[in-house]
């Protein structure tokens, strides 16, 4: 059986984190969590996630900081990051996209659309991986 893709959920609201995790597991993904910026960066280094879902308002290092730092880490710079935040898109989307985020969702996110974007990104990675190994 193929290895399940791993998604790192960075979210300080426990209920939202749990809800998203249940949904993603049912979709066939492995999930790992972080509830603050420092833990998020730690997990990114130790867990090697295939994709990251990132909240912006976080304790100890907000989402912008996490994204900025992540993109400087050699091993993690290619991990696709989807931002999911309660902050209005017009003040944040351009900025996080410039830093390399692949998508921006305002909370509450449309779940089918979020799943679509996750699937597309994961597919793109696995196809790239297949192309490299063949």
């Amino acid at each position: 059986m193929e290895k399940k893709p791993k998604i790192l959920i960075v979210e300080d609201d426990t209920d939202s984190m749990l809800g998203l995790s249940v949904i993603l597991q049912k979709e066939g993904y492995l999930t790992v969590f972080a509830q603050d910026g420092a833990t998020a960066l730690e997990k990114a280094k130790t867990e090697f996630p295939d994709l990251m879902i990132l909240d912006l308002g976080l304790p100890s290092g907000d989402g912008h900081f996490v994204l900025f730092t992540l993109k400087k880490l050699k091993r993690n710079e290619t991990v696709p990051v989807i931002v999911l935040s309660a902050r209005p898109a017009e003040f944040n989307e351009q900025h996080v996209r410039n830093m390399g985020a692949v998508a921006y969702f305002e909370k509450p996110a449309d779940i089918p659309r979020l799943l679509d974007v996750i699937r597309t990104e994961i597919d793109a990675i696995s196809e790239m991986g297949a192309a490299l190994s063949s």
Partner: peptide, 23 residues
């Protein structure tokens, strides 16, 4: 509106979970 979005997000997620038969 910011404070409303966070609980609303959790609410919508769990409604989706139950409604789609995941539970």
């Amino acid at each position: 509106s910011h404070e409303l979005r966070t609980p609303l997000n959790a609410l919508c997620q769990f409604l989706h979970i139950v409604e789609s038969g995941m539970a």
